[in-house]
Design a protein around this nucleic acid. Sequence first.
RNA 1: GGCGCGUUCGUCUAGUGGCUUAGGACACCGCCCUCUCAAGGCGGGGAUCACGGGUUCGAAUCCCGUACGCGCUACCA
Length: 486
Amino acid sequence: MINEKSRVRFAPSPTGYLHVGGLRTALYNYLFAKKNNGTFILRIEDTDRNRYVEGAVENLIKAINWAGLNFDEGPEAGGDFGPYMQSQRLHIYKKYADELIAKGKAYYCFCTPERLKTLKEEQEKQKLPQAKYDKHCLHLSNEEVEKNLKAGIPKVVRLNVIQNHTIKFDDVIREHVEFESNNIDDQVLIKSDGYPTYHLANVVDDHLMKITHVIRGEEWLSSTPKHVLLYDAFEWERPIFAHLPLLLNPDKSKLSKRQGDVAVEDYRDKGFLKEALINFVALLGWNAGDDKEFYYLDELINSFSLERVNKSGAVFDLQKLHWLNAEHLRKKSIAELLEMLKTEIQKSKFKSQNYSDNFLTLVIEAMKERVSFIKEFIDTCPYFYEAPTEYEQKAVEKNWNIETPEHLKKLKEEFASLNNPTKEDFEHSLTKVSEELNLGKGKLIHPLRLAVSGQSTGPGMFDLLFILGKDEVLKRIEAAIKKISV
RNA sequence: GGCGCGUUCGUCUAGUGGCUUAGGACACCGCCCUCUCAAGGCGGGGAUCACGGGUUCGAAUCCCGUACGCGCUACCA
């Protein structure tokens, strides 16, 4: 291990989408690799033919790339140890399974599913502490095995777990962990369809691909002793294990589809920034030990260490994600926001309108501090894009009285006299009118805002007037006077 | 049931024997700013550090037990 470059892998099974927990696992692997000048590998664990999903691998890669993580080796990135699809490596697993059988560390099992089922039921009836395979086929003679093989009887290969042995291993996050071998089943290594199970494929591939650190979810901790047994049986050096805490639902169960969005595609489609998702997910189970909460990916690489990963599960808290999204949005340049807003407009009902960059830039500057999502540059302030068709009822009741139309008419006249008014010009005019009427500026501003935007909240009044422009403002005041009645 | 892992404000967490009347962040509440809403600033409530025993002059921090939660317990990963 000394002087060897770190090599880590993200090894998902292709279920059709990228789980946010998977994203975090991928991220920690990526951060670890980049921090240590190592290699980040994608390996697809597609050994369950029943769960094959069309297009899943492409989706997975797309989602991870969207998040900004790139692989150094993998199905698309290439590399010296491929193929990186386990379904294409069947002959390799077979070879190693044979090696294990020859060593007596594994054996053929011809038991039918029916026998296995009744065995399990009997064991449960006897209230045995641990239901396990009874090693029945381990005791078959060589002749019987040969005979069954020749006859083509369906078979699996099982790991021959030795008894009365304590299996010990170290984990960067859990420290020292021990299991009694008597509690471990003679795990199937090769299924009757010839495909390997996760346990065999995983260990063989991690070894062959020279993986130095196995960084994966805590749900794998319980099967790690099986993996350790395999490494020992092959007489291979074990990798360093790091089992990550789980991501949790608000009720503390393992984060699942049933209780909300779980696919990174869902968050992407809802308008979350990749920067925010990455930042958020990085902080679920890890921190640098300081008070820093806002991170970009390259900063995470700098600060990351496996030793500082927490032990306990973390609830996926949408509120904090929202906050981070707003924070990252505000840190974006006007130019970036402009591009994003333009594509957002293409998805909106205003797509046929042709707004100038200049106009949209003004909208962005006015709204930047007031939004958490790009789409809110449209949704929360539609009045920039079209005249209000209705007026917030509560605000009408509060700010519109019998004298309001007169006041607005006066304002309108004053505005009409302006030539190419700036924001300051609008303000001077309003101040002038408020003095003439002997009214507080607020008494004019609130109804004016309502008339011009239909809403009671929004950016600074004079910014709003300036962005809309004199002609539009005059038109809207006129319309409001006609439409709003007390 | 068995095995394993975990347990600090509602949530994410800092904390590795005295600096802690347990710190920060999100959320919540109030005040300031102010034409509104945000943003920003200031402040507040909120954790008997799961519980019970030890060890120690001293424990959230070390040890033991209990409880609770979660994970695994497939020819799924």
